[in-house]
């Protein structure tokens, strides 16, 4: 049997397929690596000496993100109040404003916008912090000291995200409903009793649970992607040193946001 070497023309013909094939293989490899990274990190939550690190990370990821999340929640609720009021008025259904705002926030906007805000604030800092520790050999130093770097650096961040995301989503939802009240009731004159009655009667436990399920899924995605990008910043082919940390941070934020929206769709399909 003889092996034929492709001529220049043949190479041009197969090039798009080869390129797509390489990209797909890279993505599958990357996905596998992220999955293993998550698996190895997540199960170290239950090891000793983790509690203080987790509490510390809850403070950084959760408590310090709360003001910005609540501010975004307030204005999102206020905008929803104005927009939905003027739309519902056309159909003579302004009375259901409370239902519309509450369900939009609890089912959809609360988990998604909270996750995006935490990605921008805490996710980027996770990537940068771990990335700098990687390029300055601090992670190698952990290895030489027999300290498990995943357990020390990654696990507390994933655990803290799983705790913080649902809590911040709850804050976002509550403040958003109050924002809707401010515009719909205080500004546009809808009856306060009607507003809160609709909120109370339309929201079911399944809506709240669904919102929290989404926020937990987003927490796992965001923290894993951000930590993974930082942890392997030295493996990037498109940059070295400080530049690679910058590129990793950008990748982490963009990829997290895209995956939040994709997984939102997938989880919604399963929940409804």
């Amino acid at each position: 049997m003889t092996t034929m070497r492709p001529s220049g023309e043949n190479i041009n013909q197969v090039w798009p397929f080869a390129h797509v094939g390489t990209k797909v293989t890279d993505w599958v490899n990357e996905f596998g690596a992220v999955a293993i990274f998550l698996f190895k990190s997540f199960f170290k939550v239950f090891r000793a000496k983790q509690m203080s690190s987790i509490v510390q990370q809850v403070y950084y990821v959760g408590a310090r993100s709360a003001p910005v999340v609540m501010l975004v929640g307030l204005f999102t609720g206020m905008v929803l109040g104005i927009q939905l009021y003027h739309t519902l008025v056309k159909f003579g259904s302004a009375g259901v404003l409370g239902s519309a705002i509450a369900l939009s926030l609890i089912r959809e906007l609360g988990p998604v916008l909270t996750a995006i805000m935490i990605t921008a604030r805490a996710g980027s800092s996770m990537t940068t912090e771990i990335g700098i520790q990687r390029i300055s050999e601090q992670i190698d130093a952990l290895y030489t000291m027999r300290i498990d770097s995943l357990q020390y650096l990654v696990t507390p961040r994933i655990a803290a995200s799983i705790i913080s995301f649902p809590l911040l989503t709850a804050f976002f939802d509550i403040i958003g409903i109050i924002g809707g009240y401010l515009t719909g009731v205080v500004l546009l004159g809808l009856d306060a009793g009607t507003y809160f009655y609709r909120v109370r009667t339309s929201v079911e436990m399944a809506d709240i649970t669904g919102g929290f399920v989404k926020s937990v899924v987003f927490a796992i995605i965001v923290s894993t992607i951000c930590c993974f990008q930082g942890y392997f910043t030295h493996m990037r082919k498109d940059g070295h040193g400080a530049k690679s940390v910058g590129l990793s941070t950008t990748s982490a934020v963009v990829l997290s946001c895209v995956l939040i929206l994709i997984s939102d769709f997938v989880v919604t399909c399963f929940l409804l």
């Binding site: 912090e129 700098i132 520790q133 300055s136 190698d140 130093a141 030489t144 000291m145 027999r146």
Partner: peptide, 19 residues
């Protein structure tokens, strides 16, 4: 791991935890 337990390493660029 038992072998590594016996080692300690002092890096050229120190690799201290800056935080």
């Amino acid at each position: 791991d038992a072998v590594r337990d016996q080692f300690s390493y002092c890096f050229q660029n120190n690799a201290l935890f800056d935080s």
